[in-house]
């Protein structure tokens, strides 16, 4: 059987909110090392990769590898019934066709069980090679969210450029153009307000703002976001999940034909 007890249940709620509009159905791959998920959006240009390590759970048991086929909208409906401070336990039998979500209030005076039907999903797994990216930028996640939202009101695509000075976001549309530059900034009080640029070579790539906007639904998971870019490769937008792992989004660049 599989069982995972997560003291900070709100993390799971936040993960679902971040991915449920991008991916419809996906397998949660459970093994003794944790829970992993990889899924593409329906147009196959964006990919979600989630890792929740067993060590981040208060209690974790997985007797044999399980692929739990889950409709994310339905799981989100169930998790919305959990309080933000609740402890969430996931349970599934080896041969079962359901998953149980147990919610415990912080002072243990309310225990709820929700059982959700599982589904059979043929997943398309992509092999993502380890890459030395040409540029890696870490910046405040709220700032990235703000920039992407602001640019979305002006254009459909953004050019993201990285030089050793910083990262720039540009767009254009019927009403005009916009260009935002965030400079490397390591002299701020709080580490989470820093913008750091690690660069081997300047890089500039074009992406659909609609997807970048969707990725920023993960902002609540982490105060910082890391953007990894290489010429003619998908961008990686990574939110680290404290003590547990990460939520990564990959987005294919727009390339001139």
């Amino acid at each position: 059987m599989f069982e995972g007890r997560l003291l900070q249940g709100s993390l799971l709620k936040k993960v679902l909110e971040a991915i449920k509009d991008l991916v419809t159905d996906t397998n949660f791959d459970c093994s003794e090392t944790g829970i992993a998920l990889q899924a593409m959006d329906s147009s196959h240009v964006a990919l979600v990769s989630l890792l929740l390590k067993d060590t981040g759970f208060d209690h974790f048991r997985c007797d044999r590898n399980l692929a739990l086929g889950i409709n994310l909208q339905n799981m989100s409906k169930m998790l919305k019934c959990a309080g933000n401070d609740d402890i969430i336990t996931l349970k599934a039998e080896d041969e079962g066709d359901t998953i149980t979500f147990m919610f415990e209030s912080p002072n243990q005076d309310k225990i709820s069980d929700f059982e959700m039907k599982l589904m059979d999903i043929d997943s398309e797994h992509l092999g993502i090679p380890d890459t030395d990216y040409q540029a890696i930028v870490t910046m405040p996640s709220a700032e990235f969210q703000r920039i992407v939202r602001d640019l979305s009101s002006i254009g459909d695509t953004a050019v993201i450029g990285v030089t050793k000075e910083g990262i720039s976001f540009s767009t254009g549309g019927d009403i005009g153009k916009a260009n935002i530059v965030c400079r490397q900034n390591t002299n701020v009080d709080k580490e989470e307000d820093q913008t750091t640029v690690e660069i081997h070579e300047p890089v500039s790539l074009t992406f659909a703002l609609r997807y970048l906007n969707s990725f920023t639904k993960a902002t609540a998971l982490s105060p910082q976001v890391t953007l990894s870019l290489s010429k003619e490769l998908p961008i990686v937008v990574e939110y680290k999940i404290e003590k547990m792992g990460f939520l990564r989004f990959y987005l294919a660049p727009k390339i001139e034909e």
Partner: peptide
């Protein structure tokens, strides 16, 4: 025109 390429172009399907 710029085209949105699919991920298959960059990563191989397992």
């Amino acid at each position: 025109p710029a085209r949105q390429n699919r991920l298959f172009k960059f990563f191989c399907l397992h």
